[in-house]
Lab assay of single mutants.
Amino acid sequence: IRKQWHEDITQDLRNHLVHKLVQAIFPTPDPAALKDRRMENLVAYARKVEGDMYESANNRAEYYHLLAEKIYKIQKELEEKRRT
């Protein structure tokens, strides 16, 4: 379902936000690492998460909020795993 606010969101912005999700899960300073085949699954997962939020959000603010919440949860989980 195409929503009115979707018209304001460019593909570049969506790609940028997918990249932010990927960085939250696997922070790497090396952009070449993103071309690694093992990263493809991670990028696919991040695209799916972003797509789900894009579809479920009712406006741009909610879209950003859902993504920020997801990134926060991912970082929290990773922190907890590092501690144990």
Rank of each mutant, 00 (worst) to 15 (best):
I1C: 11
I1M: 13
R2Y: 03
K3F: 03
K3D: 03
Q4P: 13
W5Q: 04
W5F: 05
H6Q: 14
H6T: 05
H6G: 05
H6C: 00
H6F: 08
E7D: 09
E7Q: 15
D8G: 12
D8F: 06
D8T: 10
I9W: 02
I9V: 04
I9G: 02
Q11R: 04
Q11S: 07
D12R: 02
L13V: 14
L13M: 14
R14V: 00
R14F: 00
R14W: 04
N15S: 04
H16M: 08
H16Y: 08
H16N: 07
L17K: 02
L17N: 15
V18W: 08
V18E: 00
V18F: 06
H19K: 12
H19Y: 12
K20G: 01
L21F: 05
L21V: 03
V22T: 03
Q23C: 07
Q23D: 13
Q23R: 10
Q23Y: 07
A24N: 03
I25A: 13
F26Q: 14
P29Q: 12
P31L: 09
P31I: 14
P31Y: 08
A32Q: 11
A33W: 05
A33C: 09
L34F: 12
D36L: 04
D36Q: 10
D36V: 02
R37F: 08
R37E: 12
R38E: 14
M39D: 06
E40T: 11
E40Y: 04
E40K: 09
N41S: 14
N41P: 09
N41D: 15
L42D: 01
A44S: 10
A44V: 09
Y45C: 03
Y45I: 06
R47E: 07
R47W: 02
R47V: 02
R47G: 03
R47N: 03
R47S: 08
R47F: 02
K48G: 05
V49H: 00
E50H: 00
E50N: 04
E50S: 03
D52S: 15
D52A: 05
M53Q: 02
M53S: 07
M53T: 09
Y54C: 04
Y54N: 03
Y54D: 04
E55V: 08
E55F: 08
S56P: 05
S56K: 15
N58C: 06
N59I: 00
N59E: 03
R60H: 06
R60M: 09
R60I: 09
R60G: 04
Y63T: 01
Y63R: 00
Y64G: 05
Y64A: 12
Y64S: 04
Y64E: 15
H65C: 04
H65K: 13
H65F: 03
H65Q: 13
H65A: 11
L66H: 00
L66F: 10
A68S: 14
E69F: 00
E69C: 05
K70W: 05
Y72A: 15
K73D: 14
I74L: 10
Q75R: 13
Q75S: 09
Q75P: 04
Q75I: 13
Q75L: 01
K76R: 09
E77N: 10
L78H: 14
E79R: 10
E79W: 03
E80W: 03
K81V: 09
R82H: 10
R83A: 12
R83N: 10
